[in-house]
Amino acid sequence: MALQKVDAVIAGVGAVALLATVLGVVFYEELAGEQEITFPTSDVALTAQEGASGTPLNFALPDNATHATLAVEVVFSGQAGQGGSATIQVDMTGPGDFVGTASSSMAIAPGDTTGTVTFEVPEFAWATVPEPVTAEPGSIDETQSWDEDLVVTVTVTPPADALGAIPGGAISYSFQATVTPTVSVYEAFAEIPEVETA
């Protein structure tokens, strides 16, 4: 190979090397073989708990739970007078001092002795699902553990005729609440395929 030819080849390969460097630096993410990792979610129903009006109900939360939808059932028993509308308030606290409230009502007809109402409190959230990440082969672990419980307190205010009711008299209202939370849990661990180098 004549020397002049070699110089041209060296210059050409040098240009390729420079181009490879620029491409490597500028398009690093595209060339790095990184993958976008998302964290799929699924719903997990927690065990239902029951308590009288005003009783806090505590639910231990699984790792990676971010929000809950509550199915609430309120059961009235007693003796209504004129009846009316009972007000239901749901107070919630979650990890990280997150608080939330929701309300509903229950119609009680004159003279009723029992009654049931069910409703749903949608999406009380105390955390968010991690944003998708772009990562190289390896493991991704975005586990979030919760030390604090989800606490739900259902408080029922009876209709107005209960105000004038004489204790031990004919008019009485008693309310029991059952809460069934369904929490959304994301998959925190992702294995990105990797092959052992010899």
Binding site: L3, V6, D7, V9, I10, A17, G24, L31, G33, P137
Partner: peptide, 27 residues
């Protein structure tokens, strides 16, 4: 029959260029 330094530079440039991708991509 190339001079040694030119041969080394040429090989160095080739292996460097191919090596750029293994600097950023484990695969």
């Amino acid at each position: 029959e190339l001079p040694r330094w030119k041969s080394a530079v040429l090989i160095g440039l080739i292996t460097y260029s191919f090596g750029v991708v293994s600097s950023i991509n484990e695969t």
